[in-house]
Design a protein around this nucleic acid. Sequence first.
DNA 1: AAGAACGCCAACCGCACACCG
DNA 2: CCGGTGTGCGGTTGGCGTTCT
Length: 246
Amino acid sequence: MGRGRAPCCDKVGLNKGTWTSEEDTKLVAFIHKHGRGNWRALPKQAGLLRCGKSCRLRWINYLRPDVKRGNFTEEEEETIIRLHGELGNRWSKIASCLPGRTDNEIKNLWNTHLKRRMGAKQTGSSRAHSPCVKVGDEQDHKQESINESSSSSSSSCISSSESHVAPSVTCSGPHDETKNRCIQDCSMEPEVWGVAMDEFSFFVPPYVGPLAEGVHPSTATTSEEKATREVEDDGWLAYLEEELQL
DNA sequence: AAGAACGCCAACCGCACACCG
DNA sequence: CCGGTGTGCGGTTGGCGTTCT
């Protein structure tokens, strides 16, 4: 039981399962207006009969404006395979190297496609690449994550010292150097995406740029900025409603 | 054409870490 | 320093769509 703690919510009278487009709209509208504050309090304030965790997950995996949906490219798949070799099942780390992709999506891809493919490869011939970290070595993960923050380990390709360089814009793009850049920038933390998002505005609706993580409407200080946010709110909501066929 | 089997993906669950008072 | 709370992460599951028999 470890530390044993109360459940995140009582779950009584809360909706479960697939989100409706109405719920999506409510959530997005609320977040866009008030920003991502307290997830636990959010559903109540937004008028949602959902657990806070569920809202967070829905936002991160589906509603977030910078989330990229659709098929994975060859490059992305290769990157995932490679990074999985380096990092093991640390999906969030891997996801941080693939702009617009979520850990859940990558995890699903791995479990459905890539794992099988890798299995076929490995039984067929010798490994295509030798992982720095033994894949699936769960015991080591804890230790690794401890070390990871302080050291740019020799064999690991994660270079924390590089993390402040320009975001790995090429990560998911059909360009060369993809793999190297991705691995270098693996340590890029979510807050950096705010910057990265400017670069990636080409695959998100034009008005959602400011909605990037860490940039909340509530942070707008001047009245001009606030006015801009309002316009963006409308645009985003219109877009969302269109997307959800409301 | 119908039912069974399979695959995929969104969402849930529980644990662990981080932060704050 | 300690306990409580919020958030993030990874594993797992359930439901739906597609393919196979």
